[in-house]
């Protein structure tokens, strides 16, 4: 276990280091990326630009700029170039919306993905299975922005069943929070439900043909018990790892489109805005946050894995 924790921490440091450098370099390479020019505004004189450049340290060597920025990130006073607001504060503000969206959607897509996948597998080859297969394909291939826009147009704008986007903090009004999130949850989940139901269907079908499932049936236990204790439990193991990676990606800004369409003011939306303005510090922080979430969650997955499957040892 000590080995596992140490190795994971080491790999986390490495990943964060690599991804921050990569992000930093990408922004250096983008044309028109000079932040001083953008910060100085359209009618700036070369002197003004030079001054900004000097006061923000943009004429330092790249490695030094990197170190300065990273230092600021870890000391908590990193400031965005465009709005010149503290990035961490901004993210803290946006995080509840993103967490609400991703946790809710994560639960929904896991539940329905497993449910549909299981039904599909049990009815393999019959009409229900085929119908679910078509639905899953439609779900997977419909872009989120289209689905979101259509849902908003009909359900919020035309029928006014749901609010027209926006986010209400849970602490302000739990019911309103829920009310505002239902549509985004569903829209974000559709793609994942499609994917998960397909993955689970094939896992279940594979597991059902395993010898130990035949053994379980030969014991004379009920079909339901066979399905739950022997088939589903073993089929879920790969799903768990898939889920935690997707979930981490969504927390780390993967729900940009959903957040934008529903105007949730979440982390993803913040990242999207910052990218548009070629604003390095926020992007850097969001990217690292995402990587952090992925590393932590995948370590957690491995722990769950080792718990679910005794053959797996935690080795890092």
């Amino acid at each position: 276990m000590a080995r596992f924790v140490v190795r994971r921490l080491l790999s986390m440091v490495l990943v964060l280091f690599a991804i921050s450098i990569l992000t930093f370099l990408i922004f250096q390479a983008i044309p028109n990326g000079d932040p001083a020019v953008r910060m100085a505004g359209r009618l700036a004189t070369p002197e003004q630009i030079a001054q900004i450049r000097q006061s923000w340290g943009f004429d330092d060597p790249i490695w030094q700029q990197y170190l300065t920025t990273m230092g600021k990130i870890f000391s908590g006073d990193v400031v965005s170039y465009t709005q010149q607001l503290n990035v961490l504060d901004q993210i803290k503000q946006a995080l509840p919306a993103t967490l609400s969206l991703s946790i809710g959607a994560g639960i929904i897509w896991l539940f329905f993905g497993v449910l549909f996948g299981l039904i599909s597998a049990i009815k393999a080859g019959r009409f229900t299975d085929r119908a679910l297969t078509v639905l899953a394909l439609v779900g997977v291939s419909t872009p989120v922005f289209l689905l979101g826009a259509v849902a908003l147009y009909f359900l919020a704008f035309k029928l006014t069943i749901f609010p027209n986007g926006g986010y209400v903090p849970l602490t302000d009004d739990p019911v309103d929070w829920l009310y505002h999130l239902i549509l985004p949850w569903c829209v974000l989940s559709v793609l994942f439900i499609g994917v998960y139901s397909r993955v689970l269907r094939s896992n279940v079908l594979d597991t059902m043909s395993e010898d130990y499932v035949r053994t379980a049936r030969a014991k004379g236990i009920s079909e339901r018990r066979v399905m739950v204790r022997h088939v589903l439990r073993n089929s879920m193991i790969p799903i768990i790892s898939l889920w935690s990676l997707d979930f981490a990606a969504v927390i780390g800004g993967g729900a940009i489109l959903t957040e934008s369409v529903f105007n949730l003011q979440g982390v993803g939306q913040y990242a999207a805005d910052s990218i548009q303005q070629l604003d390095v510090p926020p992007v850097l922080v969001v990217v690292m946050l995402g990587a952090f979430a992925v590393v932590i969650l995948s370590a957690l997955t491995d722990v769950i894995f080792a718990f679910l499957d005794p053959r797996i040892r935690l080795t890092g």
């Binding site: 010898d211 014991k219 009920s222 073993n234």
Partner: peptide
């Protein structure tokens, strides 16, 4: 009825003991 027979009156031993037991139980 079959469930009572299976494991109760007729029991079965399979070929491959490596795969015939549930690995996670």
């Amino acid at each position: 009825e079959l469930r009572r027979v299976r494991g109760g009156e007729i029991a079965m031993i399979f070929q491959d003991p490596m795969t015939a037991l549930n690995p996670v139980q």
